[in-house]
Design a protein around this nucleic acid. Structure first.
Length: 101
DNA sequence: GCCATGGCTAGTA
DNA sequence: GCCATGGCTAGTA
């Protein structure tokens, strides 16, 4: 386990229920401002084994960005259960729901 | 080689 | 819509 990877995992674990963080925001907090894709990769491969709240990570546009239909539907449900609503444009308002790590 | 980005530009309205 | 970016898991041999 590399330090950056560990940092990313730790940060994702700190996102409280009812809040979200963006890929780029997490990467920056972990010390790699351009490492957003790395956060993607970590979420993709390690969410299950490290029991991460993967659904609380979205892109900077406020969109759920999982390509798989089933998973993106699940993410929407999980967020709604935590009180996070999407607006009429189908987006999540970061000015309301963003967690500032 | 993989990956669920993000920022910038061109081009439309 | 394009494309530069970046750090490295899981699983096979």
């Amino acid at each position: 386990m590399q330090p950056f990877t560990q940092q990313v995992i730790d940060i994702i674990r700190t996102i409280p229920k009812g809040k979200v963080m963006t890929y780029g925001q997490i990467a920056k907090s972990a010390g790699s401002p351009r490492g957003a894709r790395q956060v993607v990769r970590i979420l993709h491969t390690m969410s299950h084994t490290y029991d991460l709240p993967w659904h609380r990570v979205i892109n900077i546009k406020g969109e759920i960005s999982i390509p798989d239909d089933e998973s993106r539907f699940l993410q929407k449900i999980l967020l709604e259960e935590e009180g996070i609503e999407t607006n009429t444009a189908g987006r999540i308002d970061l000015s309301i729901y963003r967690h500032d790590g």
